[in-house]
């Protein structure tokens, strides 16, 4: 297990290196950010002066070398726009993204797994016919529609929830629903399929025939087996959510890294773009790693296979 984790961590470091290299060169294809920084009346000499001061006139490979050396020192440079350390800016926003992601994920799980189970268990009954269209609706409504709809209803019309911003549980509700709705739909669908598959398995019939109660069959046998694909899905969704939710954060003025990504890309703030990508990809890779480890805990077969394949 230890060696497995070490191997995965080395792979993760290599992936991060690749991602950072790509980002470093791609952002620099978009032109000189100084043109966006200087006042409109700046002369060519003013532009050249600030370009030089920011080191952007140096050869690209030279800049890349400095970039790599600085990364090894945990330094991703200073934001051109905010004149503060780029990594600090991103890490300062990250807890907000985590807060929203966890809350959205909780919202979607609380509804998705029961919906998945009910639609599988009552297949062809009215419950399925009622719930499945709701799920489809949730999946097909884009955040910029559902978010504004929720704001109009709950903040403008009834005034029971804040329309935007951060602060307390109340401010979390609408953005979490907006963001969680899409996740809810995908998790509900995958759990429905997974439950359906398990319900038809022989071990369920065996358990029933040996006299186990329906509740016991469901909770002890079916749930545990059905959760495996669900966990993979949840892992992927969690990683996505932790990477920042651009539209939801934009609508609800949520100061997470999604909003920061948009702003820093728009203003060609290279160091912040690089730091955002670094943090988002690290989170993605680590979330997937944790899902793999969790798999082993839930399903011993996976663990054995890994040991065997060593």
């Amino acid at each position: 297990m230890g060696r497995f984790i070490v191997r995965r961590l080395i792979q993760a470091a290599l992936s991060l290196f690749g991602v950072l290299t790509i980002v470093f060169f791609v952002v620099r294809l978009t032109g000189n950010p100084v043109r966006l920084l200087v006042p409109q009346n700046a002369s060519a000499a003013d532009i050249a002066r600030l370009t030089h001061q920011l080191g952007l006139d140096r050869p690209l490979l030279d800049q890349y070398g400095t970039f790599l050396v600085n990364i090894l020192h945990g330094n991703l440079g200073y934001s051109y726009v905010q004149s503060q350390p780029a990594l600090g800016i991103v890490l300062g926003r990250f807890p907000n993204t985590v807060e929203l992601a966890i809350s959205a994920l909780c919202f979607s799980l609380v509804f998705a797994i029961p919906i998945g189970f009910l639609t599988a268990y009552f297949r062809g009954k009215w419950i399925e016919r009622l719930l499945m269209p709701v799920v489809a609706l949730g999946q097909s409504m884009p955040a910029f529609w559902s978010g504004i709809l929720l704001v109009l209803v709950f903040a403008v019309h009834w005034r029971i929830l804040p329309s935007s911003g951060q602060g307390g549980i109340k401010a979390l509700i609408l953005p979490s629903i907006t963001l969680g709705m899409i996740t809810l739909a995908s998790i509900a669908r995958i759990s429905r399929v997974s439950f359906l598959e398990q319900l038809n398995k022989d071990y369920v019939r065996t358990a029933r025939t040996k006299g186990a109660s329906t509740a016991r069959v469901m909770v002890v046998h079916v749930f545990r087996n059905a959760l495996l694909p669900v966990i993979t899905m949840v892992g992927l969704e969690a990683a996505n959510l932790l990477g920042g939710a651009v539209i939801t954060e934009e609508i609800f003025a949520w100061p997470g890294i999604g909003q920061l990504t948009v702003q820093s890309v728009q203003s060609s703030d290279f160091p912040v773009v690089e730091a955002v990508v670094l943090v988002a990809s690290a989170v993605y890779i680590l979330t997937n790693l944790s899902v793999d480890l969790l798999y082993g805990i839930i399903d011993p077969r996976v663990r054995i296979k890994r040991v065997g394949s060593r």
Partner: peptide, 15 residues
Amino acid sequence: VPNAASRVADLQSGA
């Protein structure tokens, strides 16, 4: 509040 429609909603909701 980056989104103008949200700024409008903030005014309308008294926020």
